[in-house]
Design a binder for these strands. Structure first.
Length: 110
DNA sequence: CGCTTGACGTACA
DNA sequence: TTGTACGCCAAGC
């Protein structure tokens, strides 16, 4: 709607993150691209940091490689990984999600 | 008030 | 092809 706040970008990121289904993950680039700017991935990361404080499932958001970049925002280096594993998400490496199996794209549900 | 950094990714040389 | 630079937006210092 008429959300023309300075943080409109943030609000959209939170909206998308909140729509991520259980056991799925998405990437900064896909969110940024969905918002209109692919290179805004960095800003998405900033929004996710705030999203963590908002209670959004930001642990389902990973980088392009499927690596858990924001584990520090969870208060523990393996908290994010453990959360995803609890959702049935597979890991290809340590703290690296099998994004190829669980990738979810905003605007394009199952 | 202004410069730098920051949960990344793409584009160009 | 690989490497480097830039872009996005906001917060921190």
């Amino acid at each position: 709607m008429d959300r023309k706040d300075s943080s409109e970008f943030f609000d959209r990121v939170w909206d998308v993150v909140a729509e991520i289904p259980f056991g799925k993950v998405t990437t900064y680039g896909h969110i940024a691209a969905h918002l209109g700017s692919k290179r805004a991935a960095r800003t998405v990361g900033w929004a996710l940091r705030a999203a963590a404080a908002k209670g959004l499932p930001c642990h389902r958001v990973v980088n392009r490689f499927g690596g858990l970049s924001g584990h520090a925002a969870f208060g523990g280096p393996h908290v994010m990984e453990d959360l995803l594993r609890s959702e049935g998400v597979a890991f290809t490496d340590d703290a690296v999600v099998d994004i190829k199996r669980h990738l979810w794209i905003p605007g394009e549900p199952e």
